[in-house]
């Protein structure tokens, strides 16, 4: 059997065990510094952000950024509500018609503007990728400094699938010219929630 033959060869050739290093903790930052760095990184990767201050209505924020979006799918417990019903068994032909996906991010990474989304927060795994535009709701209290801190914060969270999303879909495959909007979303908007809001939403 190939499996056993391969593993036997690996075992015969791999040599003596070499030590596995421990990963040190790198410097952490204040919350204000994290937020500033996250915003700067998001701009660098072609994404946009908006702060949800003074109890501003999410539906209104979305209307002002995407006035023409007709088919909206939201996995968030507040308006705007979905105009298309998406579930795990929705057909691909339906999914690719989604113009705007509204999703909740579990955490954000300051060094690279990556926002973690996983199955617990989605209606369908394809949603963040097939939608023409993507809105991610993020609690600024869920910002961490780097990828080490991100994986530490996600430890113990079991999910069948999850992804870090950093800005909209992009390509530079033609002469190194950056084009935003390759096969996935053309724009990505991060709505920075009022601190603590997501905790209340999750509890409720």
């Amino acid at each position: 059997m190939s499996r056993d033959a391969i593993l036997a060869a690996v075992r015969a050739y791999q040599g003596d065990e070499r030590p596995l290093p421990a990963i040190p903790a790198f410097e952490s930052e204040s919350h204000d510094a994290l937020l500033a760095r996250f915003k700067a990184a998001l701009g660098q990767v072609g994404g946009r952000w908006v702060e949800r201050t003074g109890g501003r209505d999410l539906a209104e924020i979305i209307r002002s950024h995407y006035p023409d979006a007709a088919s909206i799918v939201s996995a968030v417990d507040e308006p705007p509500s979905s105009t298309l019903a998406i579930a795990a068994d929705t057909a691909p032909a339906e999914l690719v018609r989604v113009e705007l996906a509204v999703l909740r991010g579990r955490l954000g990474v300051a060094e690279n503007a990556a926002v973690w989304v996983d199955e617990a927060q989605l209606l369908h795994r394809a949603l963040p990728f097939v939608a023409e535009h993507c809105v991610l709701l993020l609690d600024p209290g869920d910002l961490v400094t780097d990828m080490h801190a991100a994986y530490a914060a996600l430890a113990g969270r079991r999910s069948g699938w999850g992804a870090f999303i950093s800005g909209p879909s992009k390509t530079a495959d033609i002469e190194q010219s950056l084009v935003i909007g390759a096969q996935g979303p053309r724009t990505l908007l991060v709505v920075l929630d009022e601190p603590g809001r997501s905790l209340r939403t999750r509890a409720g």
Partner: peptide, 15 residues
């Protein structure tokens, strides 16, 4: 780039 736009973690098959 500071990270690729998408870093996808496939764990279980989609339902």
């Amino acid at each position: 780039q500071p990270v690729t736009a998408y870093t996808s973690h496939f764990v279980t098959p989609r339902p």
